[in-house]
Design a protein around this nucleic acid. Structure first.
Length: 262
DNA sequence: CTAGATGTTAAGGT
DNA sequence: CACCTTAACATCTA
C-alpha cells in the first residue's frame, strides 16, 4: 500500500535485512517491472556488490551500493519487499529476486506490476530527470507554503502531484485535508496563510502517526478518516455521512460539513 | 460479470 | 507553461 508511510516502512525493512551482504545473484522473474535497464545489466551491475544504505524520496526508495550504482525501487499501488531464507517459498508476485551470500533472498514484490525497478549512477540526476519535488517529510514550512501559493487547481491535486511535493497519494491526501478542515477542491492558491500552516502541521502529524503505526490502516486513530472510507462511513468528528467525489480522477472521501466548499 | 483499488504516464485538449 | 481529462498498464476482490 505504498504512499510515503508505507515506503518509509519498506526502507526500514530493507535497512534491517538487505544491507552489507554480498549479492550473489539477481533474478528477474518478470521483466515488465524493469525501467530503462535490461535484465542483464541489472544482474551484472549488482553481482558481487553490497547494498550499503537506503534513501527515500517521496515514494521512491534508492539503494546505494558499494559500486557506482544505485538501485531504484518504486512500488506502484501494490508492492513490497520480502526477505526470506533460500529454499522457502517465494511470494507469488515476486518480480525481482536478490540473493545474498548468506543464502537469503530479498524479493521485490509487485502484484499489479505497476511498480518499477531501475538503476541510476546518480541520485541527483535521477531526481532531476523525474522532476521530483521535495519530500513532504523534510520540506520546510516556508517552502511548502510557497509551493501552494504557486499552484492553481484543486489543493488535493497539488498535494498529490509528485512534481510539486513528493510522497502523498490518494489516501493520505484525503486524510490531511480532512484533519485540516479543508475542501479537497479548494484551489491551492486561494488558501490563506493560516490554512496553509494548518495543512503543513497536519501533514507532518498524520505522516508521523502513520509511520509510528507501521502504516497499518487498522492501527490508525479513531479520529482518522482513513478507516471510514467506503460503505456508508460516518465522519469521526460530526457523524454525518462521508461523501465521495472525483478529484484528479481519484475517488475522494471527505465530510462536506467539516470541509467547507471553497 | 463489472467496477474499482494505495500510482504513474502518455496523449490530447483548454 | 500549468492544468485537466482520459486511457492504459495487470490483477485481484467486493
Amino acid at each position: 500500500m505504498p504512499e510515503l508511510p508505507d515506503v518509509e516502512i519498506f526502507k526500514r525493512y530493507f535497512d534491517s535485512t538487505g544491507l552489507h551482504q554480498k549479492i550473489s545473484e539477481t533474478n528477474v522473474l518478470n521483466a515488465k517491472v524493469l525501467k530503462s535497464v535490461s535484465q542483464k545489466r541489472l544482474a551484472e551491475s549488482l553481482k558481487g556488490r553490497k547494498f550499503e544504505s537506503t534513501c527515500r524520496r517521496g515514494k521512491f526508495l534508492f539503494v546505494e551500493t558499494d559500486g557506482r550504482v544505485w538501485l531504484v525501487l518504486h512500488f506502484g499501488m501494490t508492492g513490497g519487499l520480502q526477505y526470506y531464507k533460500g529454499g522457502n517459498k517465494s511470494d507469488d508476485y515476486e518480480r525481482v529476486r536478490f540473493t545474498f551470500d548468506n543464502g537469503y533472498h530479498l524479493g521485490y514484490i509487485s502484484l499489479r506490476m505497476l511498480g518499477r525497478v531501475s538503476l541510476t549512477d546518480s541520485l541527483e540526476k535521477y531526481i532531476q530527470k523525474e522532476k521530483l519535488g521535495p519530500d513532504v517529510l523534510t520540506v520546510s514550512r516556508a517552502e511548502f507554503k510557497k509551493i501552494l501559493e504557486h499552484s492553481r487547481g484543486a489543493i488535493k491535486s497539488t498535494l498529490m502531484n509528485q512534481k510539486h511535493l513528493a510522497g502523498l497519494g490518494n489516501i493520505y491526501s484525503d486524510e490531511i485535508l480532512f484533519q485540516s478542515g479543508i475542501h479537497p477542491k479548494a484551489s491551492a492558491d486561494s488558501l490563506d496563510d493560516s490554512q496553509r500552516g494548518r495543512l503543513f502541521e497536519k501533514m507532518r502529524a498524520v505522516l508521523d502517526t502513520a509511520i509510528d503505526r507501521d502504516a497499518d490502516p487498522k492501527r490508525m486513530p479513531r479520529t482518522y478518516l482513513l478507516p471510514r472510507r467506503g460503505k456508508g462511513g460516518k465522519c469521526p468528528r460530526c457523524d454525518s455521512e462521508i461523501e465521495t467525489i472525483k478529484v484528479s480522477q481519484r475517488t475522494t472521501y471527505f465530510c462536506s460539513k467539516c470541509q467547507k466548499k471553497p
